[in-house]
Amino acid sequence: MTKAGVGAAAVVLLAILMFFAVSAWSRQPAIAKPSAQPIEFPHNTHVQTYKIDCQYCHADARRSEYAGLPSVERCMGCHRIVAADKPEIKKLAEYAGKQQPIPWTRVFKVPEFTYFPHKAHVGAKVACQTCHGEVEKMTTVAASTGPNLTNDMLNLVGFKPAAPPLTMGWCVQCHRQSNATQHTQAPLDCVTCHH
């Protein structure tokens, strides 16, 4: 190969590597790292210790496409009194006092051209943990979801690895399985979710 040829190939390779480096393939939805939330809310305490139902706080899960977050009032319902001296609760009380919403960092998100209805899944008795992981054991909620480069590269060369959580393949696989084994009518029609 000529010198110019090598140079050109190098540039092309660099372009490809740059593309991968910054493309969605190497990025995932932001993961909440333990210190990334404004208040260190521990799910394990609330769920395992105090046995609070998911839908006590995430009440809209059975009524709407969004599961919702508990309002500041809902938190204060107990925390006006419970553990009111702890520093994290004091942070909560500050927000409530200023009548400001708590700016949580979003953990789970499907792309904006996708319509995921919580209501249908809660109605079909799909456990929250199926998609959200073992939330009852988590302190701050963390997740590793979405497409990743390794998985896509394997698919490209002909392997069929399991789809990562919250990718479309993962949703479709569960729908298929559920229809085959549990007599559900989970839709497989594109426009049901993409409209």
Binding site: A15, S71, R106
Partner: peptide, 25 residues
């Protein structure tokens, strides 16, 4: 130019997003 073009064509990262509850529902 090439790497810039490659970077530009690769789309945006999903940035961290805030999700706000109501104060009083």
């Amino acid at each position: 130019a090439t790497t810039g073009a490659a970077a530009a064509t690769s789309g945006c990262q999903q940035a961290t997003e805030q999700i706000l509850p109501l104060v009083v529902p």
